[in-house]
Amino acid sequence: MPKYALPIAGRIILQIGRDRRTLALIIAAPVVVMTLIGLSFPDKSQLNYIAPALLAAIAFFFSFLITGVSFMRERSQGSLERLMASPVSRLDIVLGYLFGLFVFALLQTLIIFFFTIYAFGVTYRGDLWQILIFQLVIIVGSVNLGIFTSTFARNEFQVIQFIPVIILPQVFLGGILWPVEQMPRYLQYLSDVLPLTYAVKGLRDIMLNGKGLVDVGMDFSVLVGFTILTTILASLSLRRNAG
């Protein structure tokens, strides 16, 4: 366990915790989004079908957004450079961010999950703990993708521009709105390399068909692989020596 990851995580939790407006938005935003979606699906069976996909997509989207913006702010304010001049390692920073932001991403996931169940009567068959573990892997991959992506932006505005580039194609091609099999063949190939495709498919199998993590092993493994890849990329994007 890297030595300084926990102080970094603690600082991030404290920082967001003291910013009441951000905290309120973290809680309110998924509720507003899910309310709109829930109301726009009067047919409960349709909502049941789309709910697992939305759970995966919204967790992916919010984790990516909150990480990308916070990390960009850390870069532009110079606090990341100051961290890089201290004894902390790149892995300390990535894991610190991961642990810190994970708390809020998990909070959002739980809000979405219980809100859809209790406010809209969505039903699920799989075990709650298996759903949460699957979501955990999605969040970890998305947080690290946010860190890595922020390397290519110079300000928060540019981070926002990555949403149509990285998030929207996954929403349209990941099987959330219509089955992947109904898309043209060349788009199906593209869909095969998008992590959200596996997140949606796996979570649907667990929540709708009552399958376990072992049964969705293939989807789960791809997501774990994606998480490992983004952790490596995020660590590599933090260079102590720029020369």
Partner: peptide, 30 residues
């Protein structure tokens, strides 16, 4: 790094945190 103290041109502090929390964080990472 432990034998060096670095104060960059930008303040490079965490605006939401208090003075004590900022200094405490840097104490922890050293």
């Amino acid at each position: 790094a432990p034998i060096t103290g670095y104060m960059p041109q930008l303040h490079s502090l965490y605006n939401e945190l208090s003075i004590r929390q900022n200094v405490g964080f840097f104490a922890s990472i050293y």
